[in-house]
Design a protein around this nucleic acid. Structure first.
Length: 184
DNA sequence: CGGATTTGACCCGCGC
DNA sequence: GCGCGGGTCAAATCCG
């Protein structure tokens, strides 16, 4: 680890913090499928928690979307997935048969307001599309083609043990991680 | 062999 | 300055 200080000061690019969105998902597995490919680049212990936090980066070049995954220590049955940044590409899971990007939650325009979304089966792939950093006035989805066929009951992961139930979501833009809306 | 993961070291901001 | 906490790097390692 000799040459870490030899950074040729790359034009003083500020490490700007992109807006982040977090999701709470009841899941047995830590890393949820969301239609994108990620490479893990770190893992750190979380203070006051027995569960670690994993750091992922989108594997697509030029796409610097990051993702942090940790299990809630207050409710070990839920995982906290935090996305940071916008994908510069489509989800690689846009293959036929994938239910990703087939529908949007009702009233989805920009950032979801702080009221709960209707409960239902949680689609992490759908979740990964909710990446609008700011609520633009007349924002519509980037390029979501109209669904040719809609199979509401055919989950893309049917057959696996992963059953992600949407429980709640939180917008933790710059909040401290200690503000979980979970009163003991 | 190539790409992803593991894992300790390193970086940085901040509070004291 | 020092330690701590969060975040990242990268060599070693794993795995298909």
């Amino acid at each position: 680890y000799e040459s870490r200080n030899n950074k040729p000061k790359k034009k003083a690019e500020k490490r700007l913090r992109l807006p982040r969105v977090s999701f709470l998902t009841k899941s047995e597995v830590d890393h949820l499928e969301d239609g994108y490919r990620w490479r893990k680049y770190g893992q750190k212990a979380v203070k006051n928690s027995p569960y670690p936090r994993s750091y992922y980066r989108c594997t697509t070049p030029k796409c610097g979307v990051k993702k942090r995954v940790e299990r809630s220590y207050q409710d070990p049955s839920t995982v906290i997935t935090t996305y940071e940044g916008q994908h510069t590409h489509h989800s690689p899971a846009s293959l036929r048969g994938s239910a990703a990007h087939l529908f949007m939650p009702p009233g989805f325009h920009g950032l979801p307001p702080p009221h709960l979304m209707p409960p239902g089966v949680f689609h992490p792939e759908l979740m990964s599309m909710m990446r609008m950093p700011y609520p633009s006035p007349n924002m519509h989805l980037l390029s979501v083609p109209p669904p040719p066929h809609h199979h509401p009951t055919s989950h893309p992961m049917a057959g696996t043990l992963q059953q992600h139930y949407f429980t709640d979501y939180a917008l933790l833009q710059d909040l401290s991680p200690s503000t979980m809306p979970n009163n003991p």
